[in-house]
Amino acid sequence: MKLHEIIEILKAEVLTGDRESQMEILSACGSDLMSDVMAYVKDNVLLLTGLINPQVIRTAEVMDIKVVAFVRGKIPDSNILELAREKDITVIRTEYPMFIACGKLYKAGITGRGADC
């Protein structure tokens, strides 16, 4: 699924990166625990999280995760967004809570591959 479709499904606001992005997303991971995110390696991953701090971006960088979605309407501060821009990571935010956001994406076809996280 293309990133711009995900942005539409989540009714997300784009905080860094391109709203019309054609980036292909193959799987997603929803977690507030960064070590859990790091336990599973996949490609073209979207990270959904309710955790707001710079370590989310650092974890994404380490994991080659190019897109982070903050759920539950949380607003990351400018330091986090600056770090994301520096690392070329797209940041979006949605008002949907974690379960609903994951559910909408799953229903739309992002079911993940291999072990889920």
Binding site: S35, A39, L51, Q55, T59
Partner: peptide, 17 residues
């Protein structure tokens, strides 16, 4: 630490992995 998103008890196992 847990509020920071760490302390899930996965750090050392992840390093081992």
């Amino acid at each position: 630490v847990r509020e920071m998103g760490f302390g899930a008890g996965m750090g050392l196992p992840n390093i081992k992995r």
